[in-house]
Amino acid sequence: MDTAVVVILSALTSIAILLLTSLGLAVVFGLMRIVNMAHGEFLMIGAFATTTLVRSGAMPLWMAVLSAAAFCALIGVVVEVAFIRPLHGRRLIDTLLATFGLSLVMYQIAVDIFGTASPGIDAPPGWLQLGRYSVSYYSLALPFIAVVVTLLLYLLFKSTRYGLLARAAAQDAEMASALGVEVRRVNLYTFVLGCALAGLGGALLSPVVAVSPGVGQSYIGQAFMTVVTGGPAFLLGTLSASALLGGVANVISQFSTNMWGLTGLLLVAAVLVRVLPRGLSGNWSRQL
């Protein structure tokens, strides 16, 4: 019984991590059709910003997490203006390659600043005792945070002016701008939101993983698969894909090794792509 509960809790934590590391990518891809290859590096920057702020004693964890997201948003502004905007109207592969170049640059800068390994931070203390097992409160909190973030995003896109304009620009940029939507500005906000979400994901992850310049790269493959299998409804599709892929990968890893968990994730994603080429949400009538 305890074992079952622990297995489920652990699966929920992995699902939350997958969701938090994928949302930023999903927002930018879903609304701008841009594959942000530097997404993993934004995760990494969020994580490093958090560990640096907490270790210096400047602020408590929750404040550091929010500051990390804000810091990533700032970098996002610069990246959008300097690299994404000039490539507007070019082939999709061009932005993909440009952000790829950016990710390499960011990675190397992080190596130069922090070295290849760096001291981490502790998760907030506290354990839940379940028979022979103990589960940290922090890993229990992650699923709640993930759900709250998704819910807030849903509200943002459903009931704010920006959300409506962003969805309009995503559907038909030309028509939207003909109707007076300033698509350039909407795209800037969307990209920055994606970067902030990536920063938030990395920040929330920082107490539970070893933070290194390569940390983003170890999550980005899974994040990509999640977004692809999620399909066009970029919030709820990503949520369901995280639940499915994260759940499968985690349960397999618990009973064998991490390697088989990842292989399982890849195989499930492959089968899904074959059966539902437009993703899990491909046939849904909802947009988010």
């Binding site: 891809f29 059709r33 594959v35 999709l92 592969i93 993909l96 790269q217 170890s218 980005i220 493959g221 899974q222 990509f224 698969m225 977004v227 692809v228 991490n258 390697m259 990842l262 292989t263 994730l265 890849l266 994603a269 492959a270 089968v271 792509v273 074959r274 059966v275 080429p277």
Partner: peptide, 27 residues
């Protein structure tokens, strides 16, 4: 077979092939 018979679009194709590479790296 999975990608072309599933008619995966071009951007998705880039993502799927990259993920394949990265997952091989981890494996």
């Amino acid at each position: 077979y999975v990608m072309f018979y599933g008619r995966v679009g071009d951007v998705y194709l880039a993502i799927v092939t990259l993920s394949f590479t990265l997952i091989l790296y981890t494996v």
